[in-house]
């Protein structure tokens, strides 16, 4: 990855497969294998999106991967929180400040936060699944107390181990206006919080199930059990109240490469956020 010499504006690319060049303006290590990149466009353009959407990020010469946007709309720089799971994500996670990456997007469906007026919003995240929910929580907290805002925001977060817990500062800041509970699958020395899977937090969380709307993102098995726990708690399993964010191989972001199929969905276009009733039968089928 080359270091930026001087930004010289280029005409905005137009093709659907053509990324714009962004500069790494900051980088924060969130966990041993997770980093947040702060990106600024080299041509000064603005970048509009909705929480829950993702971008295709290019590590030049390595490849391109779909990464959720973890910042809040309207704020700069643009944040992406990336876990190292292969060559491209490793190159992105280690991109030095000042280097250049490619950005295409935003793509996909969002959390649809406008439907959440007066609701008790329950946000459940597992591991890196908190990344696409971070901007959503921030928007919801901005709106809390406003006429069209949510009545209450509950954030339930699970991580494998304490050092895998991301956005710790945000979690602390959110406690002022939201109910935040954190659990880890395996405690290490010094951890004084909850131990157990994140679904175990659902039962005791303070929300009114009948007015709850839930946003869930994490590994598929975690989402299945979380939704089950929410339904047992009394959350209505209607088409709009339970939303999950799904993941598949994605290579174009535009419904043209065919990799992200899940039954009737092209998840880059019809997802990643879908309502649980849409997804439940598909998730129940192995290897679909």
């Amino acid at each position: 990855m080359a270091t930026l010499t001087e930004p010289s504006p280029a005409p905005a690319p137009t093709g659907p497969f053509t990324p714009a060049t962004f500069r790494v303006a900051g980088r924060e290590q969130e966990a041993p294998d997770v980093a947040t990149l702060a990106l600024e466009p080299t041509d000064g353009r603005s970048f509009a999106f909705h929480p829950g959407q993702f971008n295709m990020l290019t590590a030049f010469g390595v490849g391109e991967v779909p990464i959720s946007i973890s910042s809040r709309p309207g704020s700069r720089p643009l944040l992406h929180t990336i876990r190292e799971v292969g060559p491209v994500t490793a190159a992105l996670c280690r991109a030095p400040v000042g280097s250049l990456v490619g950005v295409r997007g935003p793509f996909g469906t969002d959390w649809g936060l406008d439907a959440f007026a007066h609701a008790d919003v329950v946000v459940v995240a597992g591991g890196i699944g908190l990344a696409p929910l971070r901007g959503a929580v921030q928007v919801l907290l901005d709106r809390a107390g406003l006429p069209m805002g949510p009545r209450k925001v509950v954030v339930l977060v699970g991580a494998r181990t304490p050092d895998q817990l991301i956005f710790r500062r945000d979690l602390d800041a959110w406690r002022a206006h939201a109910e935040v509970a954190v659990t880890v699958d395996m405690a290490t020395s010094g951890w004084e919080g909850n131990v157990g899977v994140v679904t175990s937090l659902v039962g005791s969380a303070g929300f009114d199930a009948h007015r709850a709307m839930a946003l869930v993102c994490g590994p598929e098995v975690m989402m299945r059990h979380t939704v089950q726990a929410l339904i047992e708690r009394g959350v209505l399993p209607t088409s709009i109240r339970l939303r999950v964010s799904l993941e598949r191989n994605m290579q174009c972001g535009t419904g043209l490469c065919g990799h992200c199929q899940l039954g009737p969905f092209l998840l880059c276009r019809d997802g990643p956020v879908v309502t649980y009733p849409q997804a439940s039968r598909l998730l129940a089928e192995a290897e679909l």
């Binding site: 270091t3 010499t5 010289s8 060049t21 250049l100």
Partner: peptide
């Protein structure tokens, strides 16, 4: 070939 990009600017050329 969809695009090329040359260092150091990595301006993407369709």
């Amino acid at each position: 070939v969809i695009w090329t990009a040359k260092p150091p600017s990595y301006h993407v050329q369709e």
